[in-house]
């Protein structure tokens, strides 16, 4: 126990660097994935059939492909097709490609949950397409989609650990380095698991607060 603590103190600055990398990969990856999910969802709702079919095919492929295989493909195979990305960029692209179909599905389900009558009512009082989306659909859909999106955000944050395989210097990469120096695999990995747990639990609690904030209108009525 004492030895374990000594390791975390000695390598503290490196662990902190790794954690910072993990956090910003998570934030950037989540933003890109969410943006891609909105585009995917818009494409899936497009009147143009080939586009819808393409989105379906893509979603189906991603649902069957392990993220690790996707990562290998983007970092080690894509360069032979001219797509040459740094490890961090390849990591962000992998997280985006992998998580966007799942997020798009969460958004789709949330929008579908809003009664069509509300949209019609909005139109009836003279709201345009944009006003309906901004004032009626999105605020409610965001609140409905949030629990599923938070689950996916946490999944994405955890999957940043896999990026260590292509030399992204996030928390797990640093941990492998530390284990190779200290030869205390169980203690160090268990300690790092605790670090992940604390950060992800904090993230989840923060997101729950946001969810409560977004759904405050429901409580006010009931």
């Amino acid at each position: 126990m004492h030895d374990t603590l000594a390791v975390f103190i000695e390598y503290g600055p490196q662990f902190l660097d790794g954690l910072a990398e993990t956090i910003w990969l998570t934030l950037l990856g989540a933003l890109c994935a969410l943006a891609a999910a909105v585009v995917l969802q818009a494409a899936a709702a497009s009147p143009w059939r080939p586009l819808r079919a393409l989105v379906r095919l893509y979603t189906e492929l991603i649902l069957g492909l392990p993220i690790l295989v996707l990562l290998y493909g983007i970092y080690f195979v894509a360069p032979s097709f001219g797509l040459r990305l740094s490890a961090v960029a390849a990591g962000i692209l992998t997280l985006t490609l992998y998580y966007s179909p799942y997020m798009a599905e969460a958004i789709r389900a949330a929008i579908a949950a809003i009664p069509a009558g509300q949209v019609e009512a909005g139109n009836a009082i003279g709201f345009g397409w944009f006003a309906v989306a901004r004032r009626i659909v999105l605020p409610q859909a965001a609140a409905i989609a949030l629990p599923a999106l938070v689950g996916l955000l946490i999944g994405l944050a955890k999957d940043t650990a896999i990026l260590s395989i292509i030399s992204v210097k996030e928390l797990s990469y640093i941990t492998k380095q530390v284990v190779s120096r200290t030869f205390m695999p169980f203690e160090v990995w268990a300690g790092v698991a605790l670090i992940y747990w604390v950060c992800l639990t904090a993230l989840e609690v923060a997101m729950r607060r946001l969810e409560r904030h977004l759904t405050r209108h429901r409580r006010a009525v009931s």
């Binding site: 970092y75 080690f76 360069p79 040459r84 740094s86 490890a87 395989i165 292509i166 030399s167 990469y173 492998k176 380095q177």
Partner: peptide, 18 residues
């Protein structure tokens, strides 16, 4: 230093100028 898991992977990074 970029750390990978196999030599062929290090060669890919070298081949592509990364």
């Amino acid at each position: 230093l970029l750390g990978f898991e196999t030599i062929d992977q290090t060669i890919v990074a070298l081949a592509d100028g990364r």
